[in-house]
Nucleic acid binder design. Structure first.
Lengths: 118, 118
DNA sequence: CGGCATCCTTGGAGATACTG
DNA sequence: CAGTATCTCCAAGGATGCCG
């Protein structure tokens, strides 16, 4: 008979605290940009400014998904948006300095893929 | 009246082909390792071999999720598993050369996080 | 052109319980 | 200890339509 209450299968609160206090910020970085569409979109914006539909074609995301991803990235200061309201309207997206700072990540991913994929 | 059938909202087949033939393999890399748990687990294994429950505590993943992520990583040749069947049983996980080759990615993510998070 | 609103499907993932 | 088996829930995301 245990003197402690039974532990749930997943991490306990104290585990989570330990885990949050963990050494590196890879976990934090992954939490902020570590989703498929965010990585793909940010990578696509590294080189140059792009419009909404350009991103849609190059990434393959639906307009619904793309607009949500871009809004989220903008909220977190990773991309900037510039709108031209004259008809036909145009919307240009660029990476901020914060977003641009991820380029070493993409270079590392690119090199890894070149070596280990196909 | 369009001479072409109406295009759906998302990318067309030809778009997808263009996209797959795209320059860089960041997209491929993201497809293989670009999910939260895979990144977190691989990062946790970069330094040294770990056992199942060690990973469970350090990552915060449930045993269900962790076992599935590890199996998937093993299937793709990113981690190796060594089992000791003597009681109490033990299961040790390590990164393969392919998984170890991702360390520049994690270093880049760590540095980015150090600069741009909190 | 650049989205937003809506519906709907799917997979990711936690909780819980059980086994060798 | 190291998982597996279910059940369940929720967010991601595609399809479609509409609008300034």
């Amino acid at each position: 008979m245990p003197t402690q209450p039974p532990e749930p299968d997943s991490a306990t609160d104290s585990d989570i605290e330990l885990h949050n206090a963990d050494v590196c910020n890879v976990v934090g970085a992954v939490a902020e940009v570590g989703s498929k569409w965010k990585l793909v979109v940010l990578n696509d914006l590294q080189d140059d400014e792009k419009r909404f539909n350009e991103l849609k074609r190059s990434t393959g995301a639906s307009s619904y998904t793309l607009s949500r991803v871009l809004a989220d990235l903008e909220d977190h200061g990773l991309v900037d948006n510039r709108k031209e309201l004259e008809s036909p309207v145009a919307s240009y997206y660029t990476v901020t300095e914060k977003g641009r700072a991820l380029s070493p990540v993409f270079e590392a991913l690119d090199e890894w893929g070149a070596t280990w994929l196909d």
